[in-house]
Write a protein that binds this DNA or RNA. Structure first.
Lengths: 119, 119
DNA sequence: CTGTATCCTAACGGATACTG
DNA sequence: CAGTATCCGTTAGGATACAG
């Protein structure tokens, strides 16, 4: 495998700086579940994201070509976001992580409380 | 699937707050490749992590029960870190992400440059 | 409805020096 | 060798107000 040390172009880091972002993961998995969504729908579905972070995250994902944006010339405005083909390929990986989280959260929480008692 | 909205105990968020951390991912995948490693070995292999962040990250991973720490009473001191069984189960998922990154980095970089030109 | 623009605070995390 | 302690600049990101 390619040596990752001190390599600014390391793919792992390139992608981690993006999908390592909690909001990006949430947006991608949500779009993966619901398909095309409007801005407000995403905003309400994710729930605890701020408007600002949703905007920023969507822009970054568009920039990376993972999400596409379609704007309708209507009043009031309507904007729809959809995963691109590339974006879709990321969904199963993130879902696998989500499943891992579900399967292991209990153990992790227990470990944390044990650790807290000892220290 | 469990509704993730406004749920502070959401497993996905619990895990994302940890593996969403770039340093944690790097430590886990590195230990996954190399097996047991000493502090300095990890420090040098990862390369651009600071001593402080390595210490902090290892502590958090121990707290979650993903990494175990073994200290030898020697002079100079020797400390070895190893993935726990739980930690090991996370490795293939992270490696899958790394492979995804390798496969898609080119397209992502291209998308970014196109985006940069237009805007 | 779908954003943009500021302000502002907590935290992240690097650099450095010190310790057992 | 394997950390700890401290300082300190940068940034993430929430709150709020405003705009097209």
């Amino acid at each position: 495998m390619k040596n990752r040390n001190r390599d600014p172009d390391c793919p792992v880091r390139t992608v981690l700086d993006r999908i390592g972002d909690k909001w990006a993961v949430l947006v991608i998995t949500t779009l993966g579940e619901e398909g095309t969504m409007r801005f407000n729908h995403l905003y309400e579905t994710i729930g605890d994201i701020s408007q600002k972070m949703l905007t920023v995250t969507l822009k970054k994902l568009q920039e990376d070509g993972l999400v596409s944006r379609k704007m309708y010339q209507e009043i009031p405005p309507r904007v729809e976001y959809t995963l691109t083909d590339t974006g879709v390929t990321l969904v199963p990986l993130l879902n696998a992580l989500a499943e891992w989280a579900n399967a292991n959260m209990k153990g992790i929480k227990k470990s944390r409380s044990v650790y807290a008692e000892v220290n």
